[in-house]
């Protein structure tokens, strides 16, 4: 049963996953943390970090990670297939009607709504993740430092994640 709900959950996620990983985090959180309690909030954020320091799309990484945690290798396989299947079918259909699709006014109209919605979704995930990760003064100071590193020094996310982990060890261990 578990494995079927796992597949359906990722099928749903795949169906509306527009605009890259971050915008989909509220949907992930809702289905994985809140509705099914497959991961704790802390582990959900750790998983995002792990998806960032490993190659590959964040949605595939998360599907594999959560699937494995719930039902081992077969769970990992099933959720990864789940998150990809609907997009794969759609892409195959659209590739046959490429010119019509590219000219379609309807598709463009839908995206005038979807594009800004993705911004709102990303900000919603900041709001939620911050409530779990920014709990004390130390983390707020670290947050400020990292923002400077990201905006001014433009470090690659991998180095930012490793740096904050090392500071974490110094501060919390």
């Amino acid at each position: 049963m578990m494995i079927i709900s796992l597949f359906i959950a990722f099928l749903m996620i795949g169906m509306v996953s527009f605009g890259g990983g971050y915008a989909m985090l509220p949907l992930f959180e809702r289905i994985i943390v809140i509705e099914n309690a497959w991961l704790s909030r802390d582990m959900f954020i750790d998983m995002i970090a792990l998806s960032q320091i490993t190659p590959g799309p964040i949605a595939v990484n998360s599907a594999t990670f959560i699937g494995y945690q719930i039902a081992g290798v077969s769970g990992a396989l099933l959720s990864t297939l789940g998150v990809m299947s609907i997009p794969l079918v759609l892409v195959s259909i659209v590739s046959k009607y490429k010119t019509q699709f590219l000219k379609s006014q309807t598709v463009q109209a839908i995206f005038t709504g979807l594009r800004p919605a993705l911004v709102g979704l990303i900000m919603a995930s900041v709001f939620s993740v911050a409530q779990t990760a920014l709990l004390d003064w130390m983390s707020l100071i670290l947050f400020g430092i990292i923002l400077v590193v990201l905006f001014k020094l433009k470090w690659h996310p991998i180095y930012v994640i490793l740096l904050s982990g090392i500071i974490g060890i110094i501060v919390y261990a």
Binding site: D46, A49, V129, F143, V160, S164, G165, I169, A173
Partner: peptide, 19 residues
């Protein structure tokens, strides 16, 4: 655990900057 407590902060920052 301490490493990941630090890492979680940078996850907030990374998503915030993307937003």
């Amino acid at each position: 655990l301490a490493f990941f407590k630090g890492v979680r902060v940078s996850v907030v920052a990374l998503i915030f900057v993307a937003g």
